[in-house]
Design a binder for these strands. Sequence first.
DNA 1: TCCAATTCATGCATTTATGTATAGGTGATC
DNA 2: GATCACCTATACATAAATGCATGAATTGGA
Lengths: 294, 294
Amino acid sequence: MNWNAISFDWNHVRAFLATVEEGSLSAAARATGQTQPTLGRQVAALEEAIGVTLFERVGRSLTLTTSGAQLVDHVRAMGEAASRISLAASGQSQSIEGLVRISASDVLSVYQLPPVIAQLRDRAPGIEVEVVSSNAISDLLRRDADIALRHIRPEQPELIARKLADSDAYLYATPDYLSRVGNPKVVDDLKAANFIGYGAPDEMLPHFVAMGLPLTRDNIRYHSDSGVVGWHMVRQGLGIGVMSEQVAALTPDIVRVLPDLPPVSFPTWLVSHRELITSSRIRLVFDHLAEMLG
Amino acid sequence: MNWNAISFDWNHVRAFLATVEEGSLSAAARATGQTQPTLGRQVAALEEAIGVTLFERVGRSLTLTTSGAQLVDHVRAMGEAASRISLAASGQSQSIEGLVRISASDVLSVYQLPPVIAQLRDRAPGIEVEVVSSNAISDLLRRDADIALRHIRPEQPELIARKLADSDAYLYATPDYLSRVGNPKVVDDLKAANFIGYGAPDEMLPHFVAMGLPLTRDNIRYHSDSGVVGWHMVRQGLGIGVMSEQVAALTPDIVRVLPDLPPVSFPTWLVSHRELITSSRIRLVFDHLAEMLG
DNA sequence: TCCAATTCATGCATTTATGTATAGGTGATC
DNA sequence: GATCACCTATACATAAATGCATGAATTGGA
């Protein structure tokens, strides 16, 4: 190894990478938890060290020079290697104490995870749990979380996934609301009903149609990005919503709409990193989730 | 990018890498131009930061833990990315001033390069030249040199090579030595002659045999790793040596042995990095060498 | 068994890098 | 065209890392 060729300050490379990715020194400082003067000096020092002008100081912002742009790929590769080091290091941790981050949809996070975590507390009191409640598919490759619960099968080979039991989802509403729309008995009776949408109505509608419901865009008048908010709209008697059987069972004063309508079955996958799962702490949480939810 | 995951000190990764590659903190300190306490503290800080014990302090030396060993691949990848940054940065340099390192065999370095460099001085006075004189094939991928002169075609796709003119090598000796062995006229007359070997005799002998010479191990009594030393042995009348026509022409009082013997033809390749050759400084030296030696 | 060589660990003075505060500029917006 | 929001550059006090000198421990060989 020619140590002389790589004797420049590697932290300055990270400063350059952050500046490129975030778009400015100030943004990079915010993202990395450093200060703008530090980032500025580090980038300037890197330019001095490798003899390449990386940014053109034009106006209030920096733009990559062509020379700088040709280094970006290698700089990214270095950052990715650093990420893998961090990942593998976390996977090496055999400590039964410490943080584990679990990403799940808000509905899962609110209704199903808390009791599971309560049991985990009894099994492994030293484990700290952070629930990353998001309906966006969290990027495990970016390490937004250590473990994720998803309803689609992950494709990346770096991830390992365990399929949990399939869940059945039905239509639910309050008895009060159902009587208000004339106690529907067949699907055609739902044409005048209100449906609660989770996320954008245009994304929700095809799912309702696939269930055989004769609905249009106008049937989805109330909607929310949050599944929990949507479910509370249902509980409030604002309309009919889809929900998994398990969650609905936890909710009093909610009845199934058209009980003869076949359910929508959907899978749940427990996902983690191939390298992270070697950590006994994460492995323990992973196995616990699989046992309790599977 | 999850900056939090890669917020450990990247220089400490280099310290770890150097310690792994060099085998000890002290050796790593020597190799990287730092001090042993610094390296020791950096490795300890990295262990603290990523929560993994990298080395087992046993006796006077360090041995990698299994956890540490599983990080080494990623750490090497980071180092290689750093090397590529350095390489690409050098290639981006459009300065006509600065250092260019040329690797060549000692014979080329001593007899043929100096006049070529003298002409280069007139063409580009700002260029500093370091001649890495070595008969080992220098590792351009490790950046032991910027440009190399070789007699075998490089295979790595990262390297670019330009073929120079083929050279003819003949047998040479002093007239004094030839008369001492009876002025040989045909190859069989050489059976009793001494041959000068460059490098190990066992490596040299097959080349002589390939030339049709009836020699054995015993014919090579004087040899040296250095081609220059070997050639001076020939000049001193210690035996017969192989030398390229061009170099022999520079040497007075040396005559060709068996002038009718067909020459051994060998190629010369001018080699550099694909990314380095984009530097105008290195490009200039590369082209100058090609012109003067081609 | 003793000695020499080599290794890692530690205390201290010095150098270096960092953060805070602030100044100087630029571009978008009303 | 003035204002606002946002960016980069600089001065200075503070915090951190580095190198030097030295100590302690171990290995290999005479």
